[in-house]
Structure formats: structure tokens, C-alpha cells
Simulated assay, not measured.
Amino acid sequence: MMRNLDITTLRSFVAVADNGGVTRAAGFLHLTQSAVSMQLKRLEELLGLQLLDRSGRTIALTASGEQLLAYARRMIALNDEAVSRLTDQAYEGEIVLGVPHDIVYPAIPQVLQRFNAQYPRVKVQLLSSYTRSLKEQFARGECDLILTTETATAENGEILAERPLCWIGAPTGSVWRQQPLQLAFGRYCTFRPKVMRALDAAGISWELMVETDSDRTIEATVSADLAVTAMIEGTEPPHLAQVDHGGALPELPVQLINLYGGETSGSPIVNELAALVRQAFRTISTPLQSPQWNAA
């Protein structure tokens, strides 16, 4: 007998995979935890397969679950595209979204994918720059929405997340043990003076080995174990890692990820994009690119 997969059930399955567990998935979908758990059970019973490995302290996808995940994403995307193109033709135009380069991944690709599925006739122009430049462009009306990384929030901004800065180096690297400590930072990076002040206060000598406008140059230098840098916890790319310094380096201050324009745009479609951005940053796991599977 032919069995039919339900899009709603698949959507819950993908949400659990993307958000790191049933608890966050339920919040993301605006459902109860029991409803999401029931949908997962129904999906496993329909296929006669175990999709989640619950044998450990945390849960993970089984091999069958990993295989289904790829199909589920495609089916949901096709469903959303068909519904949007056939029923929602009201919105057209362009939205400019400004995001600091170091927090684009992994939340923003998810936001852009979901927004495009819902509003295929609206183009989102992603502008990646430094916080200071983005705020200046927003003030001139050149951006509809911007995200920033700051230690405070201006009157017209809203806090989406609060995370500490952390030391970032090459996986299994050792350059952080050397003094003077070799640093690599962007020329206009707002993290740099905070890091230098923390090192000075701890009595650790340092040298600015790389000062550049190129993020790739910084990443290449750090991944070669020639210097360390600082990023918001969980935003480091996969080829870099948090430095397990055991207290040898000073703790770094907490940063705020702020949203500007989400409550003042007056445009329904901009508000929709802002809602997706809020949802992504408030439900995504920490560390951002490596969600912890939890059984809750």
C-alpha cells in the first residue's frame, strides 16, 4: 500500500533537526512539545524506521533520519513555493538587510531561504559590513533592517541575543601559548579594542600581526595557527575553533546582537522579514553552527 508523507509532520522533523531538539522546535513552530513529539512518533511509525537515536544523553539523527532530512527539506521547500506562487502575489519589491559579516552564518541563510519561499517576488539584498558602517547606512535610509554587534542598544533597537566574545584559533593550534600574543583583526572591528584592553589588564603582551579589511585574510591567518582572533561565541566558521586556554587568556566581554528597523519600518513585508530574523536568533542553538541535540 502506498504511504503518503505529511508536510506538517515533515516540517516538525526538520525543525527538530535544525533547532537541536524538541523543546526549541516546539517554540519555533509555536506548538507544544507533546504535539511535536507525537508528530515525530507518527512519522517513525508510518515509515517503520527509527529516525532519532535516543540511546545517549542527547538525541541525534540515525542514518535513516539523515537520509529523510534531505528529502524533507526539498518537499517542504517545494510545497511552500507552490503555495506562495499560487496564493500570494501581493508583495513585490526589494528589501535591504544589513548584517555584520561575523554573524551571517548560520542564521541568515535560514532566514533568506524561508523568506524566499514565502515571498518569492520580493528580493532581499544582503549587505555585509561592519556595525559602524551599517548604522550609518541605516541612518541615511540605505537599509531597511540591520543587525549589529554592540555592548549596548540604542533607543530604537531591540536585543535579539546576548553572547560572550571568545578566543578563536586553529583547531589544535598552539599560537595562543606564545607571547607576545599574535592577533588578527579587521581594521574597523569593534571587538579589537575590547580584546586589547582585556590583554593589557591581564598583563599579557600582544602584537597586531594582521590588520586588514579582508575577513578571508583573517581566517587564513588564524587557520594557519599564526594568530588568534575573537568572535561571538558560536559564530566561528567550521575550519576554526574556540581556544581551550584553561584560563591562560582573559575572559572577554559579552556582546549584544541587536536589530534595528524591525519595529519602525511601517512596511508589513519588512516586518515579516524582521519576524523571521528574530525567530532565527532567539531559537537557534548555542554554539550556533553546532546545535546540541537534546531529548527535551
Rank of each mutant, 00 (worst) to 15 (best):
A224P: 14
S55R: 14
A220I: 13
R74W: 07
F13Q: 02
L160E: 03
E81Y: 12
I59A: 09
I76M: 05
N258I: 04
Y260L: 14
L97G: 02
L273D: 08
N271H: 11
L252V: 06
L199K: 05
M75L: 15
E92N: 10
L145T: 11
T32F: 02
R3D: 10
P250W: 00
L69N: 09
V83N: 09
L165H: 01
Q67F: 10
P120A: 04
S214F: 11
L240K: 03
L208P: 07
R74Y: 07
A35S: 12
P120S: 03
D18T: 00
S37H: 01
Y105G: 05
N156W: 05
G141H: 08
L208E: 13
P193K: 07
V124C: 03
L126R: 01
Y130R: 15
E162N: 10
A296C: 10
E207V: 15
Y91T: 12
F191G: 09
D225S: 10
D225W: 06
V124L: 04
S34C: 00
I103P: 01
D102I: 07
G261W: 02
L46H: 02
V16E: 00
K135F: 02
L249M: 01
S285P: 07
I146L: 15
V222A: 10
Q125M: 09
W176T: 04
A72L: 08
Q292R: 13
C189Y: 13
R282M: 15
G173N: 04
H101A: 13
I7Q: 02
P180H: 06
Q279I: 11
M231L: 15
T9P: 01
R54P: 02
A224M: 11
R163P: 01
A184E: 06
T148Q: 03
D213E: 15
L147W: 06
L46G: 03
V210N: 10
P250F: 00
V277E: 05
V36Q: 01
N79M: 08
A17H: 05
Q137C: 08
A77L: 12
Q292G: 09
Q289T: 14
T190V: 14
S285T: 11
A201S: 13
A202K: 07
D244A: 15
E44D: 02
V175N: 05
E162S: 14
K135Q: 12
G20P: 04
L259D: 03
A227E: 08
V83M: 12
S290F: 11
S84D: 05
N271Q: 12
I269K: 09
E251N: 09
D80G: 05
